Computed example of a mutant assay.
Amino acid sequence: MTVKNAWYENDSRFIPGHWQPAVLLDLALSRGLDSHRLLRGSGLFHEDILAGQAKLSPQQFLCLIDNSQRLLAADDSSFLFGQRLLPGHYGAASHALQQAGNLQQALDILRQQRALLSPLLSPRVLLDEQQVHIYWLDSCGACEQQRFLLEAGMTALVGMSRWLSGERLPWRCSFSHAQPRYVEQYWVHLGENVQFGAPLDVISLPREYLHKPWPGASLTAGKVVQQHSRAQLDELGFDASLLDRLYSHLLGNIRQAPQLDSVAAAFGMSASTLKRKLQKHGTHFQEQLDLARKHVAIYLYQVQGYSNDEVAAYLQFHDATNFRRSFKRWTGLAPSALRRLWQAS
């Protein structure tokens, strides 16, 4: 299967500087920081962003995030940034979010418009019988900034849903990293139902909230601005990053045990070119394949109720022992420990 859609990479300059980057810049400036120090190494000046014409690459945005974290040195920076992110002021895509009639529509818009609304962190939606789960993927090689983006992304979703629904929704947040010393910031901004050391970064909610009507939404205005937001994406020329496209391709072909050469061919490039592009994003093919396998394995365990042998066979592991060893490397947990973790949550 050939991947036909275009994508952006971490050096693609397409993020308007007066959108998400300006949100972080204004937060830092409000705390007395100097704009030149904040933008150092990004190749930009504050005047470029104020002019409304500057376009940042993900690399430049990540440089701004790194500078802000280091200079602010405050535990609440990511959460305050997240509170300001959604719906945001990002043209028609933000207007579409503001007119969403319920959480399902908002999640659909956020997923479809992720290049505009969440260019560094890609939200993925998964449903089981009781819950809706949104898990988060690194779109551009965030590396050290990944935790900052996760904290901000989950805070943005919690804050937006509370504002548009008119109520505090009972979100449950799980993070793969260990509990940090500033855990009170999680409780303040995300609620007390927060778990650390989880197998993946995910935020969950009972399914009954998906279709509960949100007050203030306009059906007519919503349809019009969604058309305009799709036109925004058409003008942009892509709606996802290279890592997003690769993840989707690996998921769709996971039972065929994807290999570097065949995947590179599907992307219309040589294996060496794909390796070089992934290295530019701070990752490699095996890491991306293991990520897709991990997510499929967790889904099969948690949602489908598969046994170890069934999951191993599904993922083309011929040795169940080797699969269990790989699963522990992916998640830090043995399958049996994962089940105990779910039962305790």
Rank of each mutant, 00 (worst) to 15 (best):
G32F: 01
K4E: 10
A28M: 09
R40T: 14
L29M: 13
C63H: 08
L71I: 08
P58N: 04
P58E: 01
F61S: 04
L64P: 02
S57W: 05
A22G: 01
Y8D: 00
L44G: 03
G41L: 12
D34G: 09
A28V: 08
G41E: 07
S12V: 02
L64N: 06
H36A: 15
G43N: 08
A73I: 04
R40H: 15
R40Q: 15
F14A: 01
L62D: 02
L24S: 06
R37N: 03
A6N: 14
Q20M: 12
A51G: 13
L39C: 13
D34R: 13
L25E: 04
F14Q: 06
I65Y: 03
G32D: 02
W19E: 15
G41H: 13
H36C: 08
D48N: 15
S42K: 09
R31Q: 13
R40P: 01
E9H: 07
H18V: 06
S42C: 14
A54T: 10
L24W: 07
S57Y: 05
L29W: 02
D26S: 09
L27Y: 10
D26V: 03
S68F: 03
L62N: 06
D26E: 14
L72C: 13
P21F: 06
L29K: 09
Q59A: 15
F14L: 10
G52Y: 03
E9M: 12
I15A: 01
L71Y: 07
L64G: 05
H36Q: 14
G43K: 09
A28H: 07
L39P: 01
S42D: 10
L50H: 01
K4W: 03
W19A: 14
D66S: 15
L29S: 07
G52Q: 10
E47H: 07
L29R: 08
L24K: 08
R13L: 03
A22K: 06
D34V: 14
D66F: 01
Q60F: 06
L44Y: 13
A22W: 09
P58S: 11
F14D: 02
L56T: 11
L71S: 00
Y8I: 01
E9R: 14
L33E: 11
L33N: 01
G52N: 04
K4T: 14
I49D: 02
L24Y: 00
P16W: 00
I15V: 14
H46S: 09
P21L: 08
P16M: 00
W19H: 15
L25I: 14
F14R: 04
Y8A: 02
L39F: 12
A28P: 05
Q69P: 02
S57V: 03
F61L: 14
Q20W: 04
I49K: 01
H18D: 14
S30W: 02
K55W: 03
D66N: 11
H36P: 00
L71F: 08
R37H: 06
S30H: 10
N5D: 15
G41A: 11
A6T: 07
W19I: 04
L27G: 08
D34T: 08
A73W: 02
S68K: 04
F45C: 07
P58W: 10
L50F: 00
D11A: 11
D66V: 01
L44W: 01
R37Y: 00
L29I: 13
L71A: 08
P21S: 06
D66G: 09
D11S: 15
